[in-house]
Simulated assay, not measured.
Amino acid sequence: MNVYEGSLVATGLKAAVVVARFNSLITEQLLEGAADALRRHGVKDADVDVFRCPGTFELPALLRRVAASGRYDMAIALGAVIRGGTPHFEYVAAETTKGVAQVSMEAGCAVAMGILTCDTMEQALERAGVKAGNKGAEAAAAAIEQANVLREAGKLPPARRVE
């Protein structure tokens, strides 16, 4: 049995971080967590580009452009959608999730989602580093692992066909 897994060694990898400005109290903490995780795993600051978009709904369009550029081994999506008193939350959360998933299937690089969908600001703050770890850091670690396993999968020879 051959098992392929991505490592968390990121030396030499290039990363793009696409972050929404809306709910910046949260998204800036996610960005700090992602940057710290990338650094700790070996990515040089010069090999990380940060792209900002207005809000989480706009994030997948920018993520698609960045991931399709061919310049990065990984692209990390960071945003925060917090429930309010209208159905707006459901629409934004659902469409953003679908958009990021679609980009991840089409991209030539690893794509990780660090987008919070929380009921309250307190929940979002907890997930952005106050109590329950930092979901930006977790997304960065997932992107590193995925980038490495995708690289290994790209080295596999074509399957032999039995006729």
Score class of each variant (00 low, 15 high):
N2R: 08
V3H: 15
G6Q: 03
S7I: 11
L8T: 09
V9M: 14
T11A: 15
T11Y: 10
G12D: 08
A15R: 04
A16N: 01
V19F: 06
R21C: 09
F22K: 05
N23R: 02
I26A: 01
L30A: 07
L30P: 07
E32N: 09
G33Q: 02
G33I: 05
D36E: 15
L38T: 05
R39S: 15
R39K: 15
H41A: 15
D47I: 08
V48I: 14
D49G: 03
V50P: 02
V50W: 08
R52M: 09
C53G: 09
C53W: 02
E58G: 05
A68G: 11
Y72R: 00
Y72H: 04
M74I: 04
A75W: 02
A77F: 03
A80C: 15
V81E: 07
R83T: 06
T86Y: 10
F89H: 13
F89N: 12
Y91C: 09
V92P: 03
A93C: 12
T96M: 10
T96C: 14
G99I: 02
G99K: 00
V100D: 00
Q102V: 15
C109L: 04
A112V: 06
G114V: 08
G114C: 00
G114T: 11
T117K: 07
T117W: 00
C118K: 03
C118W: 00
D119F: 08
T120H: 13
Q123T: 07
A124E: 12
L125Q: 14
L125E: 11
A128M: 11
G129E: 13
K131L: 10
G133D: 08
G136M: 05
A137G: 13
E138S: 04
A140R: 07
A142S: 11
A143W: 05
Q146A: 14
A147D: 01
A147F: 01
R151P: 01
L156G: 04
P157Y: 14
R160C: 15
R161A: 14
V162C: 13
